[in-house]
């Protein structure tokens, strides 16, 4: 270490003024991480699908290597070197490495490339042109479908919030009767949440029949319901976890039953959060019920799919633009309610 000023030089011999070295991460672990990177390189090589090859002439012999995995390896090693240089902890370096590997894998899996955009742009142009010139007169003809979509969203939101609230009360250890109940409900809820909305829609359409049988809205509502229960129960139970325990204890101390104390001491505390989750879920529902039309649950989505299959892009465009407007309106409405209530 080079000291510059005389004052510092004079102070140097004294042990007390020795400057602390910045903490240095373990080189051995970094070496291990580099080994991991090489391992990942081999795996990438084995699973790679493209045949692009990188030729490395060394004079006496020309090595070849697969192009993309080599790029991946170089990126990983450079990132490790940078992390080491910046004295970043080994855990963070591992995080960075894992991030690069995950990204490489994901990119390779979806075949990430932007090179084809120019030549395929001609496919998009007619659709985009249609979007600039929507068939406005069409919107009025599907008003019934709009009504169904919004009705589905309303019913699913209200029922889903009610059920979600009850589940949340049982899911949070703060408000549930015992630990076993809360663990069970939490597990059930994460199963409910892990099935995507379209999965639920397909299930209920298969169970009770879809648009073809005139049962679309019912299946759609049930699907949205499961979707909403998952979200509302999770968010609300996390809010319950964080309530002020004081009033809860006070209710306990005055001899309230579990239900009474949940109603009197916990519900008022979580109500603002609960209402905003409800409004948020309503917004999601409008969007989702439009999307779910493609699997036959009725509403505006079905109309949109019909027009899409007929290549009537002007009509699709009209629906899409109306959808954007409706979602923006719902967004503004829920912002208004939130400000009014909270």
């Amino acid at each position: 270490m080079v000291t510059t000023s005389t004052a510092e030089r004079r102070a140097a011999p004294q042990a007390a003024t020795v400057r602390p070295e910045p903490p240095r991460p373990s080189g051995l672990v970094y070496l291990g991480l580099a080994g991991l990177a090489v391992l990942a390189f081999i795996v990438f090589w084995v699973i790679q699908e493209s045949g692009d090859v990188l030729l490395i002439p060394l004079g006496f012999v020309t090595l070849w290597a697969p192009l993309n995995p080599v790029i991946g390896l170089v990126v990983m090693l450079v990132a490790l070197a940078v992390c080491f240089k910046a004295r970043i902890g080994t855990m963070a370096a591992f995080g960075a490495l894992a991030f690069i590997m995950m990204s490489y894998w994901a990119g390779a899996t979806v075949g990430f490339t932007l090179l084809e955009i120019p030549e395929r742009w001609s496919n998009v142009e007619p659709r985009l042109m249609a979007f600039l010139d929507p068939n406005w007169s069409y919107i009025w003809t599907v008003r019934d479908q709009w009504l169904i979509t919004i009705s589905m969203a309303v019913v699913a939101t209200l029922v889903g919030c009610a059920i979600g609230l009850v589940l949340a009360m049982y899911a949070s250890p703060v408000s549930s009767p015992n630990k076993g109940t809360s663990q069970t409900i939490k597990a059930v809820n994460s199963v409910i949440r892990s099935i995507p909305d379209v999965g639920w829609a397909l299930l209920f359409v298969a169970f009770i029949g879809g648009t073809a049988h005139g049962l679309g809205p019912m299946a759609g509502i049930l699907a949205l319901l499961m979707f909403n229960i998952g979200i509302v129960a999770k968010l609300t139970s996390e809010t319950i976890d964080a309530v002020n325990p004081g009033p809860v204890e006070a209710a306990d101390a005055s001899g309230a039953t579990l239900t009474q104390r949940n109603r009197l001491a916990i519900l008022p505390q979580v109500l603002p959060g609960f209402v905003s989750y409800g409004l948020y879920v309503f917004e999601l529902n409008i969007r989702a019920s439009a999307a779910l039309g493609i699997v036959g649950v009725g509403g505006i989505g079905s109309a949109m799919m019909l027009q899409l299959n007929r290549f009537q892009f002007e009509n699709v465009a009209a629906i899409l633009i109306a959808l954007i407007v409706v979602v923006l309106l719902v967004d503004m409405f829920s912002m208004y309610i939130r400000r009014k209530l909270l």
Binding site: N123, L128, A290, I294, L320, L323, V327, D331
Partner: peptide, 19 residues
């Protein structure tokens, strides 16, 4: 807020799938 109002399927149908 306009981007947020557009469902994913619209991006998919209108731009990404043909592209």
């Amino acid at each position: 807020s306009v981007i947020r109002a557009v469902p994913e399927i619209i991006f998919a149908i209108a731009i990404m799938l043909p592209l």
